[in-house]
């Protein structure tokens, strides 16, 4: 599946904090991404299955399905399992995010340079994997 097309790649973010959302939207739009938000883990999973994004970013502490469970569900899905996931959380959970299949883990608070570097790194790796023979 080619997710990052020649246009603006779409990133789906499961995040409940309004201030974090505002900053993510600002920095990602400014960096050339389209951003879509989900309020909880279930709606994020539904959105991924309905239209696979280039990347899913999720907080762990979100309602209905937590971010780690969401990550595992996406990664084990036959149709959207290659959507990379970044766990971006207030919790120190790098090892648990890795176990859940996340491509990267970032600890809050948001720092623009680190955030964008991680996203670009994951997308580059994902695209390389998608185009590999």
């Amino acid at each position: 599946m080619q997710k990052a097309d020649a246009g603006r790649p779409r990133i789906l973010i499961a995040e409940g904090d309004r201030n974090v959302r505002d900053l993510q939207a600002y920095f990602l739009n400014d960096a050339g991404f389209d951003v879509e938000f989900a309020d909880d883990g279930q709606s994020a999973l539904d959105r991924v299955r309905a239209a696979a994004p280039a990347l899913l970013i999720t907080e762990i502490l979100i309602p209905k399905i937590d971010g780690l469970a969401l990550c595992r569900l996406v990664r084990s899905d036959d149709t959207v399992g290659d959507v990379p996931v970044i766990v971006f959380s207030i919790l120190a959970a790098a090892a648990r995010a890795n176990d859940a299949g996340a491509a990267a883990f970032l600890r809050k608070p948001l720092v623009e340079s680190t955030f964008l570097a991680a996203i670009n790194g994951v997308l580059m790796k994902s695209n390389a994997g998608a185009t590999a023979p």
Binding site: N19, L23, P109, V111
Partner: peptide
């Protein structure tokens, strides 16, 4: 506080 906590500063 919510704004300053969201951002790395």
């Amino acid at each position: 506080t919510a704004l300053l906590t969201a951002y790395g500063t």
